[in-house]
Amino acid sequence: MTPDLYVPLVTPFTAAGGIAHDALEALAEEVLADGARGLVALGTTGEPGSLDDEERDRVVEVVGRVCRRAGARFVVGVGDGRRGLGRWKTAPDAALATVPAFTRPGEAGVVAHFTALAARSGVPLLVYHVPARTGQQLTARALRELAAIPGVTGVKYAVGGIDAETVDLLGDRPAGFDVLAGDDVFAPALLALGATGAVTASAHLDTAAWAELAATGDRALGHRLAARAAALFREPNPTVIKAALHAQGRIPTPDVRLPLLPAGPRALAGVRLGT
């Protein structure tokens, strides 16, 4: 089966500071037309922490509507799941929930947390494992425990590299459990090792190429996309991606909300030059 490509959408802003709903809808339609099989609303790239409840609801509504029209997979980020789980008007195909941050509850605590979340979730859960943000490492053994929880169907795997635990997990992936590459720079390598898909913010700009990589596994293409991703992540995500989308005329401003600051001109120049 061909790996699935998901694009975690940015939240475009107007010059007045509100959400540019028309631009969000157009962007969602564009990346699906170019080969993405699904979209993530309110992932880290969408700056959910800077949005109020009404804005988050509206983003979910817009992205969900586009996905339903296109027959695409629709995923919503819910933070650690303690708020926002189940409050949407358009139910997604899955909810993306992070490992609890800052508290570092240990692997047993993480398993207990997702067991409780799955019991009250009306949709399947994807675990978002990103230890650079949460401070919590998980072994392949712990991820297999998570995979055994009814209602937990996959993991967005963003550990900042490829190590023995990565090889262990992908070498004996639980049946029916998706492992989605979540670090853009390492996503081509994880796909080569057997990841079932990728969630890549840089695919805003290279959607068709990422879809081709998922379908073919072309090594040279993977190298090019990894280099492009490195350029897009030279400053905090999604600042450079938004600057590039604005330069292309696809969103009305490159603006982000505090605590993020807009990308500098050197970062954008690096993307334009492909360096």
Rank of each mutant, 00 (worst) to 15 (best):
D93S: 08
S121H: 12
D178A: 15
V66D: 06
V62G: 05
V63D: 05
Q248T: 08
G274L: 09
A28S: 12
G217E: 02
L146R: 06
V7D: 02
D178P: 05
A226W: 01
Y157H: 12
P259W: 11
D218P: 07
G46K: 11
R69E: 11
T275C: 04
L261A: 14
D57T: 13
D163W: 06
V167R: 12
A15S: 13
V167P: 01
R65K: 15
L32I: 06
V240P: 00
V199H: 04
R83M: 05
V62A: 10
T134I: 04
G217I: 08
E61D: 15
V271C: 00
V60Y: 01
R144K: 15
C67M: 02
R224K: 12
T103A: 15
L191C: 14
T196Y: 03
A227P: 02
V185E: 04
A226M: 08
A181N: 09
A229V: 00
D184I: 11
A140T: 14
R120K: 10
T139K: 13
G135V: 14
G274Y: 03
D168K: 14
A243H: 00
E212G: 13
R173C: 05
T45F: 07
H223D: 15
A28L: 02
T275A: 14
R83C: 02
L258C: 08
G86V: 07
G274M: 03
P100D: 06
P265T: 03
E107D: 10
E165Q: 06
R133P: 03
A97V: 13
V123L: 05
A72Y: 05
A108M: 09
G249R: 05
P8M: 04
L27Q: 08
R87L: 14
G161T: 08
A15M: 09
E61W: 10
A164H: 12
L232C: 02
G35F: 10
A211L: 12
P174V: 14
A23K: 03
L117H: 07
V62F: 08
R104K: 10
W210T: 11
E47T: 05
Y6V: 06
A208S: 07
L258Q: 13
W210M: 15
A97S: 14
H129Q: 10
T216G: 10
A132V: 15
A142D: 07
P236K: 04
A164I: 11
I241F: 01
V66L: 11
V271S: 00
G64C: 04
R104C: 03
T115F: 07
F186P: 02
L51K: 08
R68H: 09
A119H: 06
A142I: 12
L260Q: 05
A41D: 01
L273D: 13
